Simulated scan of single mutants.
Amino acid sequence: MTRPVVGIIGNRGLVNDRYPVHEGGQMNSCAVSHVAGCIPLLIPADPEFLSIEELMEVCDGFLLTGGRPNVHPEEYGEIETDKHGTFDRARDAITLPLVRACVERGQPFFGICRGFQEVNVAMGGTLHPEIRELPGRMNHRMPPEGTLEEAFALRHKVILQPGGRFAALFGAEEVVTNTLHGQGIATPGERIVIEGRAEDGTPEAIYVKDAPGFTLSVQWHPEWNAEDDPVSRPLFHAFGDAVRQWAAAKAV
């Protein structure tokens, strides 16, 4: 039996600072294939090449990955500044309406880092451009130097809502995660439920209230070491189960 397909929303980049590519981290594909048990399909997130309707027919679920470009502040009613960093407006044009369409249809998606922020913005929320500048907040950004192992090392606790979806999934009300982001949720979007926060209060785990499908999203990077990490593995297992359920229902 063919495995269901997860569309991995990638980013635009340059090879050798000159050749344009659509790209996605190999660890995302590894987590989708080896842990979620689905076929990973890298999506060129650009409305020039595909439509939301086509994507939703081809794919059974979606992984909204992290990436260096940020959601453009115009998408949540603010003016661009230097603090907002770089952007990928083509990805914005795909992911934001895709999230809303999936919420309405019940098609599963899993948001990671930028994807977590996209889910909040898609539902009407706003973002802080630099959370490390807020009083009492820690620096959640990737360390500027070191190996990948050091960059993705576990760095802070996430405190989960007792009895919530994430606590049930992990079998714990507190977990330890990596952290590699500069922006964060300022105002939660409509129907966004924050179930996990870092020790400094930064939102880290959310879902969309009353959505008929899987909408769990996290601010950290569970794709790193997903096969062995006790926090990452259940997230991708649950996502894979939701995608299989969607695919089976579609086949009837």
Rank of each mutant, 00 (worst) to 15 (best):
M1F: 15
P4W: 13
V5P: 05
R12P: 11
L14I: 02
R18A: 14
R18K: 14
Y19M: 14
P20F: 15
V21T: 15
N28P: 04
S33E: 15
S33T: 03
L42S: 02
P44V: 08
D46H: 08
P47K: 07
E54A: 07
L55R: 06
M56Y: 09
G66W: 07
T81H: 02
D82H: 10
D82F: 08
D88M: 08
A90Y: 12
A90S: 13
I94K: 12
F110L: 06
G115V: 04
F116R: 04
F116Q: 10
Q117S: 06
V121M: 05
A122P: 10
P129Y: 06
E133L: 14
E133C: 03
E133V: 00
L134R: 10
M138P: 00
P143S: 01
E150A: 12
A151Y: 09
A151V: 09
K157A: 11
G163S: 08
F166G: 02
A168Y: 07
L169I: 01
F170E: 02
G171K: 06
E174W: 04
V175G: 00
T179V: 00
L180H: 10
G196Y: 08
D200P: 03
E204R: 02
I206R: 00
K209W: 11
F214P: 01
W224A: 00
N225G: 02
A226F: 03
L235A: 02
H237L: 03
F239I: 02
D241V: 01
Q245M: 11
A247P: 03
A249I: 04
